[in-house]
Simulated assay, not measured.
Amino acid sequence: MGDITLLIEQARDGDRAAFDRLFEKLYPELRAVAHRRLGRHAREEAVDTTALVNECYLKLSRVDGLPPVDRGHFLAYAASVMRSIIVDAARASRAERRGGGVDAIPLDTTLVDQLADPAGEILDVDAALNDLAQIDARLARVVELRYFGGLSDVEIGEALNISDRTVRRDWDKARLLLAHALRA
Rank of each mutant, 00 (worst) to 15 (best):
D3S: 14
L6A: 10
L7R: 04
L7Q: 05
I8F: 05
E9I: 09
Q10L: 04
Q10Y: 04
R12A: 15
R12T: 14
G14F: 10
A17P: 02
A17Q: 10
A18S: 06
F19K: 01
D20F: 05
R21F: 04
L22C: 07
L22R: 02
F23Q: 04
E24P: 02
K25A: 06
K25F: 00
Y27C: 01
Y27P: 00
Y27Q: 05
L30E: 07
A32Q: 15
A34H: 02
H35D: 06
R36Q: 07
L38A: 03
R40Q: 12
H41V: 11
A42S: 13
A42I: 12
A42M: 13
E45C: 05
E45D: 05
V47S: 08
D48V: 04
A51D: 15
L52K: 09
V53W: 11
V53T: 14
C56T: 15
Y57V: 08
K59Q: 08
S61F: 11
R62S: 08
P67A: 03
D70G: 12
G72Y: 12
H73D: 11
F74C: 02
F74M: 04
F74W: 00
F74Y: 05
A76P: 05
A76E: 02
Y77K: 01
Y77H: 08
Y77T: 01
Y77Q: 01
A79P: 13
S80H: 15
V81A: 14
R83Y: 07
R83F: 11
I85H: 01
I85G: 02
V87Q: 04
R91H: 05
R94I: 01
R94A: 03
A95V: 03
A95S: 02
E96L: 04
E96C: 06
G101H: 03
G101W: 06
D103C: 00
A104H: 14
A104N: 11
I105L: 08
I105N: 10
P106S: 11
P106H: 15
P106R: 12
P106V: 12
L107E: 15
D108R: 12
T110A: 07
V112D: 12
D113I: 14
Q114F: 10
L115H: 04
A116H: 08
A116T: 08
P118N: 07
G120Y: 00
L123K: 00
A127E: 03
A127K: 00
A127T: 00
A128M: 08
N130L: 11
N130R: 13
A133Q: 12
A133V: 13
I135C: 09
I135Q: 14
I135M: 09
A137G: 12
R138M: 13
R138P: 11
L139G: 05
R141Y: 11
V143W: 03
E144M: 04
L145T: 03
R146P: 03
G149Y: 02
G150S: 06
S152Q: 07
D153P: 06
I156D: 00
L160T: 01
N161L: 05
I162C: 02
I162T: 01
I162M: 04
S163N: 03
S163A: 07
T166F: 10
V167M: 02
W171C: 01
W171N: 03
R175M: 13
L176A: 13
L176K: 15
L177D: 01
H180A: 15
A181R: 13
L182G: 10
L182R: 09
L182Y: 09
R183T: 15
